[in-house]
Design a protein around this nucleic acid. Structure first.
Length: 558
DNA sequence: TATGCCTGTCATGGC
DNA sequence: GCGCCATGACAGGCA
């Protein structure tokens, strides 16, 4: 087994099983991973560097955007919030007082109350608790200055009012805020917040921490779906456990998530072994430059009908001319139609080309005619004893690489058949050049068949190499992808855990503040409101409503 | 000798 | 229809 150097990862058993399944599919194809290790490692390093650069750029961009944004904002000294300079006066200034002073139903005078829909006369007026002159305001200010809390209240308010018909807050005033609290989810935020300029979406997260209390600034709100954990119903349960029948319409916060194969593995860098000298095989030199194997075929010269067109060459015209070579039309057809048999035929026709030098030497003592006669006697005998591969052709020369051996096998065949082209040319010439080359030489059927076969095998060999290489690259790529996904999953799990903790703390704070504020409210008689009968609702613009719970239920039923 | 890997080859289908 | 390419399957060689 080969030791492969793979990127460091700690896959689970399942992952390993998956890899093994993929790997087993190809392992018998012989693709070796180590071939790709180097490029793989390179790719990995490049990817990491690229990721780091991108992160750096993004941070830089965020800082710039934040600066630009802050330049457009001014700090509200009272609330501590940044507000656009050009924006109309915020409600935050008035909210503070109106929470306790303005007349219900709408506690914020800047927001015209929908009195026809809103508070009937049974809504008690707010009165500031004389005993707690500033603390209430302060508490609300603190509460309202927390964007997260505002957001929670907004959600609750919107849900309630959407359902009750008391008020339909503009989504533009709401949704963009969500994106501010989802700095890590810009892509999602931008989907939901069409009305919000992207620079606000992308930059508020940077300034966000400056607006919140220190402890909260530690919290990150990159919660993909806050409502999944902190939905309106849960919110209701948190504060109105007894009012579960009041269904709220949850707003749509959910987002619409939405080689060149490196040129052929160089064919064995070694050039075809024993590259034939093309010129030595020119038709005119056949008889003179008689290659050694040809001694096995004393009749071959005479058998070559150089003038005969391949198509007109009859069995009698092939090679021997006397037909002793055993080539018949059917044989030729077999060769063409069944390449698998061609090798066998070659083996029969030119048995020596399948043998080692030694074997050839021993065979040379035997007249080739004998072999040909055997072929003639039993033409149906499958070469190499029927399997076509059962006889190892080059088992003697262990030093030779198999590829070389195989290559030389075709070369030897070509040599034996006196093919006047190099195997390399036969395989690699473009089809036009190949045809042109072929047309310049009169080849008999056996030669044509062999040339075609050599070309086909040669091209297929390269194709197989490419195919295996691609397969290995795919496997390596999948392993890398698997590793990345595992890391991402791990990261998301940590993130989720962090968000949950943060959310819990916020809920707790909000609950505390809510009850604190509620307990400070007094009606015109100085009596506290019953939390069972009233609830506080808060909008994005700072308006606070005191909503009678019974009313909500009634409206809902209507 | 058994086993796993590598490579060449063939068959087949798509372009 | 031919040639090329991709790929699954198979077989042989080798360590």
């Amino acid at each position: 087994m080969m030791e492969i150097e793979l990127p460091k990862m700690h896959p689970s058993q399942q992952d390993m099983d998956l890899i093994d399944i993929l790997w087993r599919q190809d392992v018998d194809l012989g693709a070796g991973r180590e071939v790709f290790d180097f490029s793989y490692r390179q790719k990995e390093v490049e990817l990491r560097l690229q990721r780091e650069k991108e992160e750096e750029k993004q941070q830089q961009r965020l800082r710039e955007q934040e600066k630009a944004l802050l330049a457009q904002l001014q700090l509200d000294e009272e609330t501590g919030e940044f507000v656009p300079r050009s924006a109309p006066p915020t409600h935050t200034n008035t909210t503070n007082a109106e929470v306790t002073q303005s007349v219900p139903p709408c506690l914020d005078a800047s927001v015209p109350p929908s009195t026809d829909l809103m508070m009937p006369s049974d809504i008690p007026a707010f009165t500031q608790n004389p005993l707690l002159p500033g603390s209430l305001d302060q508490a609300w200010m603190e509460l309202l200055s927390l964007p997260e809390l505002q957001q929670c209240l907004n959600m609750q308010m919107q849900d309630s009012l959407d359902m009750d018909g008391f008020m339909k807050p503009s989504t533009e005033a709401q949704d963009p805020n969500y994106s501010q609290y989802l700095p890590g989810m810009d892509h999602l935020s931008s989907v939901q917040t069409e009305g919000c300029p992207p620079e606000y979406i992308n930059t508020y997260d940077g300034s966000f921490n400056t607006m919140v209390s220190p402890n909260l600034s530690q919290m990150s709100l990159n919660v993909p779906d806050v409502r999944a954990e902190f939905g309106p119903e849960e919110f209701n349960e948190l504060f109105y456990p007894e009012m579960r029948e009041v269904k709220v319409n949850s707003g749509p916060l959910t987002s619409d998530e939405g080689n060149t194969v490196s040129q052929l593995v160089e064919i064995p860098s070694d050039p075809p072994v024993n590259t034939m000298d093309l010129h030595s095989f020119s038709p005119g030199s056949f008889s003179s430059g008689k290659p050694e194997p040809m001694s096995e075929f004393p009749d071959s010269d005479s058998g070559l009908s150089l003038d005969a067109s391949p198509h007109t060459s009859s069995p009698g015209k092939s090679l021997n001319g006397d037909g002793s070579f055993g080539f018949s039309d059917s044989d030729s057809e077999e060769m063409d139609g069944s390449p698998g048999d061609m090798e066998s035929d070659y083996a029969e026709i030119f048995p020596l080309v399948y043998l080692t030098d030694e074997a050839q030497a021993s065979l040379s003592e035997k007249p080739p005619a004998e072999a040909l006669q055997m072929k003639a006697k039993n033409p149906k005998i499958e070469p190499a004893e029927a399997s076509g591969h059962s006889k190892p052709p080059f088992t003697k020369d262990k030093q030779k690489k198999r590829s070389e051996a195989r290559l030389s096998r075709d070369e030897q065949r070509a040599k034996a058949l006196q093919i006047p082209f190099t195997v390399d040319k036969i395989i690699n010439l473009p089809v036009d050049d190949f045809n042109e080359m072929m047309s310049k030489h009169q080849l008999n059927e056996a030669q044509l068949a062999l040339v075609r076969d050599i070309r086909r095998r040669g091209k297929n060999k390269v194709a197989a190499q490419n195919c295996r290489k691609r397969k290995m690259e795919n496997i390596v790529g999948l392993e890398y992808e698997l590793d990345s996904l595992k890391e991402e999953k791990e990261h998301l799990m940590k993130e989720k855990s962090k968000r949950s903790t943060s959310l819990r703390e916020m809920k707790q704070q909000l609950s505390t503040l809510y009850h604190e504020v509620f307990s400070m409210l007094r009606d015109e008689h100085g009596k506290p409101f019953s939390p069972n009968e009233y609830s506080l609702q808060h909008t994005a613009d700072g308006t606070v409503f005191l909503i009678p719970r019974l009313k909500k239920t009634l409206v809902k039923n209507n």
